[in-house]
Computed example of a mutant assay.
Amino acid sequence: MRAETGGLIVGVDGSAQADVALQWALREAARRETTLVAVYAWVQSWDDGTRGIHHDDAEEVFAAKQTYVESLIDAAVQRSREAGHDVGDPERVTARQVHGWPAEVLLELGKELDVQMVVVGRSGLGRFGRFLLGSVSSAVVQHAHVPVTVVAHEGAPVPPPETHGAGPDNADGATAPEDTAPRVVVGVDGSDLSIGALREGAAAAERLGGVLQPVYCWQLTTISPLPEAWGWIPPVEDYDAWARTRLLDTVSGAHLDLPADRVRPVVVHAPPSPGLLGVAEGAERIVVGARGLGGFERLVLGSVSRQVLEAAPCPVTVVRG
């Protein structure tokens, strides 16, 4: 096994959530043909006995931790292959044990290795399992300098999305087509971060051999008043047309390296989070910007991004500027 810069990094801790994240990271690294570093960050606990890390036999403690993370990788590789997934060359996967707080370790090591992406489970072995987004994953998403993918355990409870108004339509007004191609759904609001999310999503769709679904969710309260509509209320169809134009302009401005027939813009008359989650049902991945066009620029993670992270049944990639 060898560690190289420029690959992926995934946090592991022996939890079911982390195991699912590790298996996802193995597949993603194989698709990218890059390296993967599985990191077990730990601090001294009663499970380690009375020996401190500065004791004469500390090397034995470190060696035991290293063996543990290697066993997690071996088990994940085996389970993935039994499920029929391609996990690539095991020599591309490296085990690391690091003494330190998990979020800090992942962030610092991610910078040191200049990784393309950090992968974490939605929650780990923390005390408060009732929180859908764990403290480690939350901290990593908020402070990472690269895209972060949060992977939910398949058995995790997911609140059903609420829908309001019209259902999803594609940008030319017809019902969004259904097929068996893998879908990558991207939240779009016209911000610079949503353009970055589009490019990240297009690259993911290309690797999957699937399609990209840029989604623009709109409400009267979020786009009112329309340009040149001061003093009167236009029909709903005008708002919908404006939303479609904004979505298509944003997609065009992203200059995506993906064939046009694999880009399927969708407009939804609904609040952003439930609208996006509704379209993403059955998708391979959701991609969102860390923050959108909301009024709180000081926030590191926007409310829509956080709601999607906490409720999505599929992996969610958060893109930063």
Rank of each mutant, 00 (worst) to 15 (best):
M1C: 13
T5E: 15
G7S: 10
V10P: 04
V10G: 10
G14F: 03
S15H: 05
A16T: 07
Q17Y: 10
A18L: 08
A21S: 05
A25F: 00
A30N: 10
E33Y: 00
T34I: 04
T34L: 09
T35S: 12
T35N: 09
W42C: 15
W42A: 11
V43N: 04
S45N: 12
D47K: 03
D48V: 04
T50L: 08
T50Q: 01
H54T: 08
H54I: 04
D56M: 01
D56R: 12
E60M: 13
A63T: 06
K65N: 15
L72I: 07
D74Y: 01
D74E: 15
A76H: 01
A76S: 05
R79A: 14
R79E: 07
E82W: 01
G84Q: 03
H85E: 12
H85G: 09
D89N: 15
P90L: 14
R92M: 07
A95H: 00
Q97N: 15
A103K: 00
E104C: 03
V105Y: 04
L106S: 14
L106K: 09
E108R: 11
K111N: 15
V119Q: 12
V120D: 10
S123T: 09
L125T: 11
L125G: 07
G126L: 14
R130L: 12
F131S: 12
L133F: 02
L133W: 03
G134C: 03
G134M: 10
S135H: 03
V136P: 07
A139D: 14
V151C: 11
E154I: 02
P161H: 13
E162N: 05
T163S: 15
A166I: 02
P168T: 11
D169P: 01
G173T: 01
A174H: 12
T175Q: 14
P177R: 11
E178V: 13
D179V: 08
T180H: 15
T180N: 14
V186S: 04
G187M: 07
D189R: 12
S191Q: 13
D192A: 11
I195K: 04
G196F: 03
A197S: 13
R199L: 05
R199S: 10
E200D: 03
A202D: 04
A203W: 02
A204F: 02
A204G: 01
G210D: 04
L212Q: 14
L212E: 10
C217P: 11
W218I: 05
I223L: 05
P225T: 09
P225H: 06
L226D: 06
P227S: 11
E228Q: 08
E228P: 00
P235S: 14
P235I: 02
Y239F: 14
A243F: 00
R246E: 15
R246L: 13
T250K: 06
V251I: 00
S252G: 09
L256F: 13
P265W: 07
H269S: 11
P274M: 08
V279G: 04
E281F: 00
E284D: 14
E284A: 15
I286L: 13
I286Q: 10
V287S: 06
A290P: 03
A290T: 06
A290G: 13
L293T: 12
R298Q: 03
V300E: 12
G302K: 08
G302L: 04
Q307M: 06
Q307C: 06
L309W: 00
A312C: 06
P313H: 07
C314Y: 05
V316D: 03
V319G: 09
